[in-house]
Design a binder for these strands. Sequence first.
RNA 1: GGGCGAUUAGCUCAGUUGGUAGAGCGCCCCGUUUACACCGGGAUGGUCGCAAGUUCGAGUCUUGCAUCGCCCACCA
Length: 739
Amino acid sequence: MSTAPEQPNIPEKFLSPYDPNKVESRLYAAWEDSDFFNPDMCVKKGITRADAKPFSIVLPPPNVTGTLHLGGALMVTIEDILVRYQRMRGKKTLWLPGTDSAAIATQTRVEKNIQKAEGKTRHDLGREELLKRISAFVEENKATILKQFRGMGASLDWSRYLYTMDEQHYRAVMEAFIRMYDAGLIYRGNRIVNWDPKGQTTISDDEIVHEERDAKLYTFRYAKDFPIPIATTRLETKVGDTAVAVHPDDERYKKFIGKEYDVVFCDTLIHIKIIADESVEKDFGTGALGVTPAHSHIDWEIADRHNLQRPQVINEYAKMMVEGRLKGKKVAEAREEVVSWLKDEGLLEKVEDIKQNVATAERTGAIIEPLPKLQWWVNVNKEFVIPYSDIPGIASGATTTLKEVMRKSVESGAVSFVSERYERVYYHWIDNLRDWCISRQIWFGHRIPVWYKEGEMKVQIDSPGAGWEQDEDVLDTWFSSGLWTFSTLGWPDKTSDLTTFHPTDVIESGYDILFFWMARMILMSGFFLGQVPFRTIYIHGLVRDENGRKLSKSLGNNIDPTEVGAQYGTDALRMGLIVGNTPGADFNFNPQKVGAYKKFANKLWNITRFIFSETEGVTVNNMFSEFTPDDQALTKRRNELMTDITRDMENYRFYLAAEKLYHYTWHEVADVILEESKTIFAGEDADAKASRAQFLLHTLRSLLIALHPFMPYVTEEIWQDSPFKRDERPFLMVEQWIE
RNA sequence: GGGCGAUUAGCUCAGUUGGUAGAGCGCCCCGUUUACACCGGGAUGGUCGCAAGUUCGAGUCUUGCAUCGCCCACCA
């Protein structure tokens, strides 16, 4: 390599193109070793004032056994930009990392592995052995995701890292269950649940996806002398009917209301009462609804109102439980059997082809069987006294409900959305919220702290003694995730972290888990602390490919952010994910764009090389006041830009700030100002030279600072060999922001 | 059935409170190899989905329409 003799003091690294691969892991290690990711250390080392305003954000914990996908890379980028910016603003900044056990997903995967390798099911292994295997699997896999987050440049405080199955979080979950139970908000009840016959567990309403399928709508009578024909798609459930509901104003059926009939339907004796219920649609089907309380949510509610029997006729394996010709048949076969029986009896009046939305389990794809089960529930409508509340509109000591807590937290503005339109979606969701089923029939997770012995029940963490059996079920993963903003800070202990950093400032996540997670955090934080969990919700959209298609392995268009980062550099990847990405909207990711930002990193590198070589021997003078009129004008323009950028940062417009900085750097500084400077430096005017030298140095310094949240690596790498570096602040990462 | 969003250059998208339309990539021409070929200069390219309204002025606000997409909802 040639080292130009006329540039003796320029650090040699600037003479060859910027190479991210030579820089990134070294710099990340240096940052991490410095302890400046930890706000306490920043205070201790004099970087942050002890009385500085705190800024905190929790990382939505990724699946501990997962790998980083592009959506995750976007999440990390946005949050790191936010955090680096706030840290440079001088705030006591905490970004708290963690990983999630992802109970169902992880257990399913381990079970599958065992099935493949050993041909055994979890029941062959037993609970204890399975949990051991899962734990080993987690240990083996968790390093990957943590390494990938580091690779993105994430300035997370690893000293506070928490895994959802760690002791600290476990205690929080147990405590939460017990306190909610004591407050009367958690109850055990035999109620209709969404049962996943494949996964053999209950799932919540939010874990259901509706799929449109072709179905047949059958119109039939229970018996020859039954007065009202009814329509249904699920003939096999009709052996579980206990009523026929009609609309109270329906002239056709008014005269039958209150009458009761005993009929033998497909070998099963059923007792049908004709009832009137407002929920029945007069114009659909025959205007009469066969009520199957045990196997339909709506019918269950009707049964509540009319005090009906609720015989269960389908079991956990989606097979018929009745005697006779349907016995033991799967639901689909049973349906065919009922059809042929109806035909034989001359009871089938009509068969129509319709489109139907079928509820399926998001994870296993199985068709959901609604059936009654003894489960644990959180009552979202029951009143309780909130001992302490910071939530506007709910006073300390007031009587309220969890639903009201969720609504008021947002309505009052205590929690606000960066994209306002999500607020209405949120209210809509709350209004339709039913009691939350929190028990799951899997083994990996937080086991319900309830003990039984001879009909007695105790709610406590440890076994009450010999002969007591613990509840078999574990808690819904979202029950524990809902505590995340404060369990990570040490709750239920009254820690100084909790006082300092809660409520957190921002939660940042994709809209796919808005309700799963964010709404539940609001619920939990409101109940346990009387606080909102965060003040601002930043929702990012789905990352798609450049043609707007979803990224998926099966489509073959999956993009591994780690590979992209290795090819173009992490800074370029971050820019490619941010520029043009509006909060809340889906985003099409274009690898070519990332290529453009790789060039940009190099451009900045070369701007540095030029400026350093032209200002050889010049001392940076922050108080310099002898600017030429031209340089005064340029300084004014630069200052205005920085003010503008700061405003964008404060308002979460990172996509704009990044683009403006890009444009200014390349097309104003490099293309115009540097070209013009060549003439000045070649000329004779010493004052103009001195002025321009100071201007260029000040400008480079500003650019590095403003670009650092977006492109942390290249800016830090330049800074480390620049005259801007100060002894008391060894990294650009902890330098002060310029407004 | 209810709600939400989108429609801007060939492609993918920005455009923050209304003030003569922007970026990346692509395409064409020219130049440069002592900051940078991970380069520079220039050119081409848009009736901002359609229609009406408010305004001195509308991509931006209002209304209607069209097309596409998403979310919610168990018409059994």
